[in-house]
């Protein structure tokens, strides 16, 4: 009975970690501009961080062939030819970590031309580490419970 309760407790903890909203420190939104250079097959800078609510402008500068920049989750994109800097402005209203990637075929490794935008906290990384910790901490007692159950079934 104790193990059953423990299992329930673990599942509850897991659900909380997986779905509870993360605490947000209120930070006044800013307007931020990033100049991102694109080449075959990388962005520079390839990682940048903003706060939730910021108005973000990305100036995309292509230094070899036509490239694009598409942000997963935000579903916004911009395309730039060499010599023609273009800008993409959006409000970073979704928290978490998002891959941005080239959406204009630019050669062989195009599908892997990837960068990373983090808005506030990378919440799924935090949650997944939390869940992994819960899984490991709860594992020993839980597994003995499982094996007890199994042996009683077999009987």
């Amino acid at each position: 009975m104790g193990s059953r309760f423990f299992l329930l407790l673990l599942v509850m903890a897991g659900l909380v970690v997986a779905f509870a909203p993360l605490p947000v420190q209120p930070i006044a939104p800013l307007e931020r501009t990033f100049r991102i250079e694109a080449r075959q097959f990388a962005y520079s800078p390839s990682e940048f961080r903003v706060n939730p609510g910021d108005t973000v402008t990305i100036q995309l500068v292509s230094t070899d062939v036509v490239h694009g920049l598409y942000i997963d989750g935000y579903d916004v994109s911009v395309e730039a030819d060499p010599g023609q800097t273009t800008a993409l402005t959006f409000v970073a209203d979704k928290a978490g970590s998002f891959r941005f990637r080239c959406n204009v075929t630019c050669g062989a490794m195009h599908p892997f031309m990837i960068g990373k935008l983090t808005v506030g906290t990378n919440d799924w990384l935090v949650r997944s580490i939390g869940l992994a910790l819960i899984a490991i901490c709860g594992f020993l007692p839980l597994s003995s419970f499982l094996s007890n159950k199994k042996s009683s079934e077999n009987r």
Partner: peptide, 15 residues
């Protein structure tokens, strides 16, 4: 022209 001569003409284009 801008890819070599620069978007602002300063000869500092991306190439």
């Amino acid at each position: 022209c801008a890819a070599c001569h620069g978007e602002n003409g300063a000869g500092n284009g991306v190439f």
